[in-house]
Nucleic acid binder design. Sequence first.
DNA 1: AATTGACTTGCTTGGAGCAAGCAAATATAA
DNA 2: TTATATTTGCTTGCTCCAAGCAAGTCAATT
Lengths: 204, 204
Amino acid sequence: MSELARKTHAERTDLSDRLMLDAAISMIVERGTDRTTLKEVGEHAGYSRGLAGYRFGSKAGLFEAIVRSVGEKWLAELKRVTQGKCGLAAINAAVDEHCRVCLEASDTVRAFYILWFESIGVQSPVKAVIHGIHERRRRDVIQWVEQSDYAGPATAAAIADQFNAAVLGIVYYWLANPDNRRSTIAQHNELKANMALYFAGDSA
Amino acid sequence: MSELARKTHAERTDLSDRLMLDAAISMIVERGTDRTTLKEVGEHAGYSRGLAGYRFGSKAGLFEAIVRSVGEKWLAELKRVTQGKCGLAAINAAVDEHCRVCLEASDTVRAFYILWFESIGVQSPVKAVIHGIHERRRRDVIQWVEQSDYAGPATAAAIADQFNAAVLGIVYYWLANPDNRRSTIAQHNELKANMALYFAGDSA
DNA sequence: AATTGACTTGCTTGGAGCAAGCAAATATAA
DNA sequence: TTATATTTGCTTGCTCCAAGCAAGTCAATT
């Protein structure tokens, strides 16, 4: 069915969408968002100059589409590995999964986080999507803490913020030093150890 | 001496440099780096279209100059407030100073961190400067830990990485939610509390 | 007086984005 | 089924504007 010939409209757009998103992800990882041009996204995907701009409306629209599609898969995966867990067990599972994905080092995730960080300075559609993802992550962590028997001094929200800040910081250094696998692993482990401190002497 | 008339060469460049850097910082905070143009930086500073490009060589060069100048002042300030301290005291002083600067919310610092985060996706001169700043921060924290009587299980490097990751994560959320002063304060406080956990039961 | 250095202006290049057009796919009618 | 109409995926030609370069002007230095 992947002949050059006969395709339904839906199949055509699905295909060109996928090809262009893949092309864009590669280009973002290789040369950054600045030097990723709509023209080349279209052409690398095997289409014309103009298709990426036409399909996604603008460069920001293209980036938004990437963040949306990757973000959804990512959140679903995190949900899966923490299913039925709470407290430190859920946190550990989430950190492990996160570390695994970083080490896997797919262009997809790298591009996702590059767009995440770059969205900070602009009033782009990407920023809104990221904000939503962040909020969902935050709520998840709060829930894990609240459903556990944690009874320490820090609020669940404070722990969640601390946790998410740490994850983001770790991601930053991972992006900056992609080849230092040892450090990536160590920082994830240290985060788990750090979170365990909250749950260590809390039975009082 | 700030007449329109007679200026020495050094005075002229110093002045135009400052004016253009200020203009650029405002524009970055207001509209993001993308929509900050060399043309408007020059014009907003009261010069011609072309001066910013001529002076800084390129847009990346302008951004590098901003990160350099802000970064130097910033590191000096951090050095000042932690002078003679070590261990948790130094960490607490650094966090307090960091929190203070965030709450002050000067365009300068905001632009600095925006450029910091955006440098992640590119192979820009900014990235190298940021990397240097990060390394110095890391060494500082390691030193603080090593010079204290800390004797817990985590290495000084691990604590430093954890600390810097947390700071960066907090900065991210501060940039994303600039008006939420309570959260900014809370996260800084939580970071101090978190770091205190390392030093709590370590006398063994 | 000669030269250096600050700053400006004119120009080229290239990407973003828009609109008009072409061709393949779908809907409608005989 | 076959013929016609319409929608929709995709392309091409265009305008606009920022980056960056080179040649020029004028003030400051020697």
